[in-house]
Design a protein around this nucleic acid. Sequence first.
DNA 1: GATATATTTGAATAAATGTTCAGTGAAATA
DNA 2: TATTTCACTGAACATTTATTCAAATATATC
Lengths: 191, 191
Amino acid sequence: METRKEQKERRRQEIIQVALELFVSKGYAATKITDIAKRANMSTGLMFHYFESKEKLYEELIRMGLEGTAYPGEQKCEHAIDFFVNFTEALFAYMKEQPVVAKFFVLMAEAQRSEATPEHIREIAMKVNVIEQFVPIIEWGQQEGTMKEGEPLTLSNAFWCSLQGIAERYATNPEMELPDAEWLVDIIRRK
Amino acid sequence: METRKEQKERRRQEIIQVALELFVSKGYAATKITDIAKRANMSTGLMFHYFESKEKLYEELIRMGLEGTAYPGEQKCEHAIDFFVNFTEALFAYMKEQPVVAKFFVLMAEAQRSEATPEHIREIAMKVNVIEQFVPIIEWGQQEGTMKEGEPLTLSNAFWCSLQGIAERYATNPEMELPDAEWLVDIIRRK
DNA sequence: GATATATTTGAATAAATGTTCAGTGAAATA
DNA sequence: TATTTCACTGAACATTTATTCAAATATATC
């Protein structure tokens, strides 16, 4: 048996799950509240019992995306380059077992890029800034000699954009084979 | 002095240019005909004198994107790996001098990914399939020993997704520094 | 069991937005 | 110059879609 509170929470989660699916596959603007309601097996009116508006639902998902990007920190690694290998391997493993992870990449990317995103939501999405967080680790790697010479920010950017591109494709193409983490780390690895 | 035909053609190009800008920055669904009209300094009604519908305008842009992907072919290179270096360098140089190039990456990616894209337009967008075109060149490189071992399609995929990720970021962030072509080719280069 | 509270519906409402169109004036053509 | 053609406008129209709400049903509380 299920208490009302539990039931409500479950319904809420169902909506969130369906909304993520649709926001990712069609984009936020093209996703209708009725689409979400239909896929979640409920009336359109009920949607507003759970979420004040379409925008608030979106905001909730963006907040989840931000929190989900809990940065794994600089685990103990002998070399800076190991950090990136571990990070990438962990990310790919996570994406394989939880397809939702790749979907969040698409969600957050759209929220960040699109000028149609409500400003306050865009600000939340913008807080995800892995590129800058990578910079000090790359500098460390350059001192060690395990990473390429060059502007650390540019290296970080190249590496992260590559991950982003792969995650985005994987989100809608889960049958594709993910590359070896090592291949990608070669972008920044010193030869 | 300008003939009517020339004037009409110029207007058409203005609309196309503005529409590309907006479809990229806001997404197709979130871009209103009135937005385009305003930015192109004309009444909304006039838009329909030049394009039958918002969808037809979109289709036109997607067709342009498809044609613009005129594949440079296998230029004469000593090694397969050189092809990828040349290709990437050429692409980045082109993106720098013609910002519109990166924008088309975003446009085509959205059209391909989004389930909100009208089916016949999606089909056009799907014709761009560089990943498969790269496969034989990668196989050649593997025979030569200049490229990594592994499934050619997976390598091609990793490389292309990386380019895609970089182009997408560059489209809305043109102040960012593009990486060395060599860095990216290291994804597929044998060590 | 009676009452109160919460969930759910579906139709009504309101706002946004793609599209049409009758009319205006400028440019081409005769 | 007179006539026709065409670019152009902006208001009207039609459709779509987010949101509201009164009523109905189910669940909890006493």
